[in-house]
Amino acid sequence: ADVTIRLGHLWPAVAGPHTKLLSVWEEKVEAESNGRIDVEIYPSGTLAAPPAQYDAVKNRIMDATATVLGYSANRFPLTQVVELPGVQSNAVNGSCIVQSLYDNGALDSEFGDTHPLFFFTHGSGGFHNKGEAIMQPADLKGLRMRRPTTVVANILEQLGAQPVGMAAPESYTSMQRGVIDGVALPWEGAMSFRLNELAESHTEIEGLYTLTFIVTMNKQVYDSLPADLKAVIDNNSGLEWANKAGEVFDELDSLGRQQAVDAGHTIVTIEGGTENPVWKAPIVNARKAYLDDLQEKGLPARDVYDQAVALAASCGM
């Protein structure tokens, strides 16, 4: 091969995002370049630990990564508007929103230092907890829940729960031993972090939150490719792959949900998702706090939010 692209990501080699998404991308790029590009995938954060993966690509410790943007708080605040409650409704929808925002140039200010290939999100996160099901906001009072993002931490706090920050691999042991009562995760996460083994009840709130992922490449490495190989990479970037990624995550979500159904767990689905009148108040507050904060810093957060909501209606529907 003329070029080796080292792509590091955070999932184990047996997980869906590796086998169904990134390995497929690898094969496609290798085939379309007639083997002139060799993609080497490093799963499980073996080349750089998840929180350091974006910088590792920027500094060319690896050439490309698939990683979570939220690990670096306030570094990609406009992109993370997609994560706000009430924006997306599933992974295909969320992926399309964030990719379209980027394609429209709304997020350019945040990605000057690498060459993004495509973006995606996971499906709507919900609550997975031990004991009684969470039917209404009051049920969260007194529970200790692992928080995925600052915005969800804000919602949990308003509802009287204690948001707990802890490393993701610790959440299984912590829930097993009772240090936390539950977690906020999408079904896919509940399955792959094995929390479906521990949880007894699950609460689905469509649109509650999501995480944004990016597949991105080192700028220098991309720029130094000959035109025909650049074309191969370009051909495997953008909305088409965002959409594929979304499909993979939606499929994993339904597998994760099926696991809980088969195990006979209680599954509560909140009617109307984030629009449900009983749940709406804290959710609107948290969203407003986030957007106000960015506006105050002089960022066009409301504008991006409005665009995202408009895209949500047309995306993947």
Binding site: P51, A52, D55, N59, R60, I61, A167
Partner: peptide
């Protein structure tokens, strides 16, 4: 194997990420 510029980042990442690793 890769290049020396990124190798310097490896030094920084190796030290900073290890020392600030909660685990």
């Amino acid at each position: 194997i890769v290049a020396f510029d990124p190798a310097i980042s490896v030094l920084e990442s190796g030290a900073f990420d290890t020392l600030s690793n909660y685990s």
